[in-house]
């Protein structure tokens, strides 16, 4: 029933790979930024447990964003997003997650305030749409699809880490 509404599994995995890699990279970067301090505060087991919580949260966050894109696919006409989802999904993922990351690097109160204003919303929307329409260019489209396809390799690392993290949290809290 949903097959004609949802993209191909291979494309979904490619886009998820882009999302997960961006989010894991961000989380891991911050984790290693904090690590020297945590080594003085926490025992090794506590640090490992903290990492597990971070990884599981990051994984779920990625799934949530993917779900958002799939919901868009479901409701939009197929040619808008479902067709060539690998390229179009990547074209939406990169600016949205990228802009949120940039926002969190901003320390200037006034700029931060603008982002939450109508102006900020309009600027963000324009940037996202720009990416989206650029993805219609055949060369950019194939580049984005190829990029997403190459990111899939990271899932072979990320999914086992997620499963291990989830198991360690379950063991600690259930048994």
């Amino acid at each position: 029933m949903f097959n004609h509404r949802l993209p191909k599994l291979k494309d979904v995995l490619s886009v998820y790979a882009v999302i997960a890699t961006m989010l894991f990279a961000w989380s891991a970067l911050l984790f290693f930024w904090y690590l020297p301090s945590w080594m003085h505060f926490m025992l090794i087991g506590e640090i490992a447990a903290t990492f597990s919580y971070v990884i599981v949260a990051s994984f779920l966050e990625g799934l949530s964003f993917l779900l958002f894109l799939l919901v868009l696919c479901f409701f939009l006409p197929p040619e808008y997003l479902r067709d060539e989802f690998a390229a179009r999904g990547t074209a939406l993922t990169l600016p949205i997650i990228g802009m949120i990351m940039i926002y969190f690097r901003i320390t200037n109160e006034n700029i931060a305030r603008i982002i939450f204003s109508v102006t900020g919303l309009v600027i963000s929307l324009v940037i996202v749409l720009l990416f989206y329409f650029l993805a219609n260019n055949p060369r950019i489209k194939s580049a984005l699809a190829a990029l997403a396809d190459r990111f899939t390799v990271f899932l072979y690392i990320l999914i086992p880490i997620f499963v291990l993290s989830l198991l360690s949290i379950a063991v600690q809290n259930i048994f």
Binding site: L23, V54, S58, I97, I100, M101, I106
Partner: peptide, 9 residues
């Protein structure tokens, strides 16, 4: 401002 969450979204 400038506080950085590990889960950006």
């Amino acid at each position: 401002v400038g506080s950085v969450p590990s889960a950006p979204i």
